[in-house]
Design a protein around this nucleic acid. Structure first.
Length: 714
DNA sequence: TACTTTGTCCTTTTT
DNA sequence: GGACAAAGTA
């Protein structure tokens, strides 16, 4: 219940007790960021400087929001009611629920997750006869989201060419359809609530007056719209407290705008930027490695982490012959550490892309080591759950066409593609929803089923509503006949449990007064897909992408797949500032480790079903050698190069066993007098006629006659 | 209409 | 290697 201010270092204390002015806190990895943020809120409230209802605290993830609430609550004598604490999307939702009429939405408006959105885009694109080759649905969805996140509506899109015009037209049609159905996508939540306040001065004044302290976590990840949304509350004397780390900005690919930090500092005339540079997490060598690596980035606000802990162990580096060799080694190392009393849950294997988990999983499985993969299918994203939710959505809001299409013929009721097409035509003609035109069609029985469900569940408590719909929809019955349906039925039961656990408090905090319990529950399902996974508490090795590791820490970290074309990814090399983002990603990965860090790479890797050969990542070169200990012989020192992998990696051969060609083999590192170092990726011929194909990075891919080229083994 | 087979496509993803 | 969609078959 105490704040324990005496345990803070001077910078942390300065941040926590910052006087009434706007603050910008540059908080390095492991510098006690969350602690500063939560202690400040508690300090403001406890010192009588404000009351909970006048605090607005924003984070990016539900997990972070929950953690913040728990920690603030622990420091206060009473449960702080009335505080607005949550994710950007959660808070925007809450605002829209409270003012649904002003926002032009139905009371029971439904939220589409990315899956739903893509389904709608596909359906709409088909209906408008849009060429999927020229305008892939994914790109259309991306275009819409990117514009919304910049605060740009369809009519405001700057049209530069014909393609752009067609995309903008599609964007307009998409928004119109959403409006017709009463559904909103993720960015729409924010844009809508932004426009609502922008337009409605009375509401804006109300909220600006109310919120006295606005605190933002992970500020480096905010996009332009989120920043503008935050600024709506300025003007009535609200004080901002933004915490972020530009070196950990790893979401620019999704619209995050690090420039917000500099903009904020300038626009709000921030007097003093507080830098939290003391790291309480990692040993010295690990931190030095991270610092050295990130120093290669040009666009930084500047910061250098230090620690009072000792140097610790060197960073260990391993080169595998193949990805499976790398995985085998990781697993052996994990086993050895585990025998020496490091719990499995304190070790993590990090990788750049999800596909990499498979080899490691395989290796772990064959040795019977418990592990948990993060970032898989989440609870509310499972097919059977999506189906059940679709029934519930139709009960709450019949016009939701996505939901209609999902379950009209599931379980099968003889409503095929043709019937559905007819319905869609009719709906388009009449300007109505599928549900509305279903009466009198082949889908009339389905429509009647939904009507019945709606009547039967009217006024029932949430748990019973969900239970009833799950039973009467025929889903359970259907899964009983399926071979692997038992798990699905179990999940459906779990959904009923989730509904039972969803309390009045949750409803109020998440969606506000205006939402009925069912709609609030569906909102909860959409916004919090449910990290809830089996085996959560068990002692298991942690497997995840570097992205999902942000904010976490482990005693031991394995950073795998450090290869050119993978980490940094081949796409990043050609993107503007792509390499810098990859480097920040590597920085995030390194700084997850407390005591021991392993870096590994493999000479060959199975990717997209074919073996490819890669050179070690440039990031390995950027870490000073004196911090590292090579468990395998150090690779040939290479000159700095910028390989263009965009075409070349595709030229790798499929499944050719290593064989000798004129003294060389595929996958071997070689040096050429003119082209520098490279990797042999293919070979043909024998003896004096032998030729090898070599990937020289920036010097391209070349076929060379062994007898002439004078290649040297590297 | 519903199930099986073939062809294409591959980063990262808090909401 | 694996997800997903289009094409093929009962």
């Amino acid at each position: 219940m105490s704040l324990h201010l005496e345990l803070l270092n001077p910078e942390q204390l300065a941040a926590v007790t910052l006087p009434d002015e706007h603050g910008l806190i540059l908080a390095g990895a492991g510098s006690g960021k969350t602690r500063v943020l939560t202690t400040r809120i508690a300090w403001l409230i406890k010192g009588g400087r404000t009351v909970p209802a006048r605090v607005l605290a924003v984070t990016f993830t539900n997990k972070a929001a929950r953690e913040m609430l728990t920690r603030v609550t622990a420091m206060l004598p009473a449960n702080p009611r009335g505080m607005w604490m949550g994710t950007f999307h959660g808070l925007a939702n809450r605002m829209l629920r409270s003012h649904f009429r002003d926002a032009g939405l139905p009371q029971a408006f439904q939220i589409m997750d990315s899956q739903d959105q893509l389904a709608l885009v596909k359906r709409l694109a088909k209906g408008l006869n849009i060429d999927e080759e020229r305008f892939p649905p994914r790109e259309l969805a991306w275009f819409i989201n990117a514009n919304k996140e910049e605060g740009v509506r369809a009519r405001d899109v700057t049209v530069t060419d014909e393609n752009m015009r067609r995309m903008a037209d599609f964007y307009a049609a998409y928004d119109e359809q959403c409006q017709k159905e009463g559904v909103v996508d993720f960015p729409e939540l924010l844009l809508r609530s932004y426009e609502l306040l922008k337009r409605n001065e009375i509401l804006r004044e109300h909220y600006a007056q109310r919120f006295q302290y606005i605190l933002v976590d992970e500020f480096q990840d905010t996009n332009r719209l989120q920043y503008r949304w935050l600024k709506l509350f300025a003007g009535a004397g609200a004080k901002y407290f933004c915490v972020g780390d530009d070196d950990q900005s790893i979401y620019t690919f999704r619209g995050a705008h690090v420039g917000n930090m500099a903009d904020y500092e300038r626009e709000f005339k921030v007097q003093k930027v507080v830098r939290l540079e003391q790291n309480y997490r990692s040993h010295g060598n690990i931190l030095d490695a991270a610092n050295a690596l990130i120093a290669n980035n040009r666009n930084r606000l500047g910061k250098n982490l230090w620690t009072a802990a000792g140097k610790g162990e060197p960073v260990r580096v391993f080169e595998g012959e193949s990805d499976s060799d790398e995985a085998r080694w990781i697993v052996e190392e994990v086993q050895a550490l585990n025998r020496d009393n490091t719990p499995l849950s304190q070790m993590a294997v990090l990788y750049r892309s999800n596909a990499q988990s498979r080899v490691v999983e395989h290796s772990l499985f064959s040795r019977g080591i418990a592990y948990r993969v993060y970032g898989g299918l989440r609870f509310f994203e499972r097919a059977e759950i999506k189906h059940a939710l679709a029934y519930l959505r139709l009960v709450a809001l019949p016009d939701d066409d996505n939901a209609f299409i999902r379950v009209a013929n599931f379980p099968p009721r003889g409503i095929g593609a043709r019937t559905m097409e007819q319905l869609q035509d009719a709906a388009k003609q009449a300007g109505k929803s599928l549900f509305a035109v279903a009466a009198g069609s082949k889908a009339a029985t389905f429509r009647a089923l939904i009507e019945t469900l709606r009547n039967e569940t009217q006024g029932l408590p949430l748990k019973e509503v969900v239970e009833h719909v799950v039973e009467k929809s025929g889903l359970k019955e259907h899964y009983k006949t399926e071979r692997e349906g038992a798990d699905r039925i179990e999940n459906l039961d779990e959904l009923v449990n989730a509904a039972a656990a969803f309390t009045e408090d949750d409803r109020e905090v998440e969606s506000g007064e205006a939402a009925d319990p069912l709609t609030a529950f569906l909102t909860h399902a959409a916004l919090e897909a449910g990290e809830h996974q089996a085996g959560e508490g068990a002692d298991a090795l942690q497997l995840m992408t570097v992205h999902s590791a942000k904010g976490l820490e482990f005693d031991v970290v394995f950073m795998s797949g450090l290869e050119e074309g993978l980490f940094p990814s081949e796409k990043s090399v050609t993107e503007r500032d792509g390499l810098e983002e990859e480097r920040r990603l590597a920085y995030v990965a390194i700084t997850r480790a407390r005591k021991r860090l392993y870096l590994s790479h493999a000479q060959t890797r199975m990717l997209h079903g074919m073996t490819r050969y890669a050179m070690p990542s440039r990031f390995l070169e950027e870490i000073p050698n004196n911090l590292m200990k090579w468990l395998t012989p150090r690779f040939q020192k290479q000159k700095a190069f910028t390989p263009d992998f965009s075409r070349q990696t595709r030229t790798t051969v499929q499944n050719k066993p290593p064989r000798d060609v004129g003294g060389f083999r595929i996958g071997q590192n070689v040096v050429h007098a003119k082209f520098g170092s490279g990797v042999i990726i293919d070979a043909e011929g024998q003896g004096g006629d032998a030729r090898v194909q070599v990937n020289f990075g920036s010097h391209g891919v070349k076929w060379l006659a062994v007898a002439v080229a004078n290649l040297k083994a590297a």
